[in-house]
Design a protein around this nucleic acid. Structure first.
Lengths: 229, 229
DNA sequence: AATTTATGCGTACGTCATACGCAAAACGCG
DNA sequence: CGCGTTTTGCGTATGACGTACGCATAAATT
């Protein structure tokens, strides 16, 4: 048997508790003291299992994305589309996820599992291994970025709906000088930002789908160009 | 004339000083006290010109991306490529940029100018206004995300080169179970991560270019499908 | 029971953002 | 020139935070 006092908690417990707090009250509410309190331990007890708060954040970051789903049968395109949507959904369940600073290349078990799932969606395509990695990494950063934006806007809208409803178009009309920014003025005048509710769930989802569509269209074009080479 | 004591500094001065500190020592070094010291004022003096630190961060965020370049003549593709590279370069000059939390839709003058420049690259294409916005926003989030990743990895590499040089491939070989993650194991075995220096400048740039290429390929395909519709 | 070895945690320190209230300066008016 | 008004400058104080340090405590070995 092992000597010494038995640990009352381990790093996984701490990570779980921290994630629960972040889900409920935001990442800012996650302090070492708060996490310890939630676990019924003293603040400094956590440092026996976690080197620093940064390390805790890294652990949270990996466990946040639970497990990737099993991809449906079908072509690479349907599978990659499904994968990207799953990534977005996974992040949406933990809106604090994009706030955590990137500490390095993916090494956590969950991150790697998602990476594998994305690569698996490209099985059967004529892409080189390096190209598959490029496609999945590129798509991943796109989805992460989109999620980050979406979460920030959603939060802003929830905090002050009046400031967002339809106002963005008006604000832009005031700010945008047609001489200096003709292209922007054109789309503003076309009414692109004049929806009743700019951050309507459907609108944001459509925006994401369009970007995803473009990216996959690009992958398809690249695959086609390989086939004919 | 205006009554009362003359302001010794204004919000722009504060923003400039904060950016200088962030450029030199990172965003973490930007505290209200530090900024005030740099300006020769007391800490609390800053609050006369800036409501809170969050507001200061928002100001920094907008002024970080100086002014967009004039796009070269040519087709939309060359122009958009140039634009995306310029965005990446602009961010690279202020590596702390992606760490600033998004506070809302773009309203700052610089952000809007970049937005306009991106839209301007699509002048002459048959895209609807809403589609142009989708393309530029999508590309923007892709570039931002890629920059974020790149900066984080570069920093990690600079701090501890030994831990990164060629090691990532080895680490993955140990971590990746071929049964559970066949697709990832395949690319690892193919040696994709076995470069001498994973974060060689050229490698990272090539990765970015490939993702950018895919996205633009997608835009081209979308435009082509419109033309034939 | 004594020793070893790991964990639990109370205390203390330095840093941070910022609320509050008064001091200091620059103006208009007499 | 002096007085009152108005605006900026800032000293002090508060509470929250991450975490270094060292001792108390409990479990297993001897």
């Amino acid at each position: 048997m092992k000597r010494g006092r038995k640990p009352s908690i381990d790093a996984a417990d701490i990570t779980r508790a921290a994630i629960a707090i972040a889900d409920a009250e935001g990442l800012a509410a996650v302090s070492m003291a708060r996490v310890a309190q939630e676990l019924g331990n003293a603040t400094m007890a956590l440092y026996r299992h976690v080197k620093s708060k940064d390390e805790l954040l890294a652990l949270m970051s990996d466990s946040a994305m639970e497990d990737p789903p099993v991809l449906p049968a079908g072509g690479w395109r349907e599978r990659l589309w499904f994968w990207a949507k799953a990534v977005l959904e996974g992040i949406s369940r933990h809106p604090w996820f994009p706030q955590i600073p990137i500490s390095g290349p993916p090494v956590g078990p969950h991150s790697l599992a998602w990476f594998d799932a994305g690569l698996g969606a490209l099985d059967g395509t004529p892409l080189e291994p390096g190209e598959k990695v490029g496609v999945v990494m590129g798509l991943m950063t796109f989805v992460h970025g989109e999620a980050r934006l979406r979460i920030a806007l959603t939060r802003g809208f929830q905090e002050d709906p009046a400031a967002f409803n339809g106002r963005y178009g008006k604000v832009l009309r005031e700010l945008v000088d047609g001489k200096k920014m003709p292209a922007l003025a054109a789309v503003v005048d076309a009414g692109v930002f004049d929806v009743d509710d700019l951050f309507d769930v459907e609108d944001v989802a459509a925006e994401f789908d369009f970007g995803l569509h473009l990216f996959l269209e690009g992958v398809a074009a690249h695959i086609a160009s390989k086939g004919s080479a």
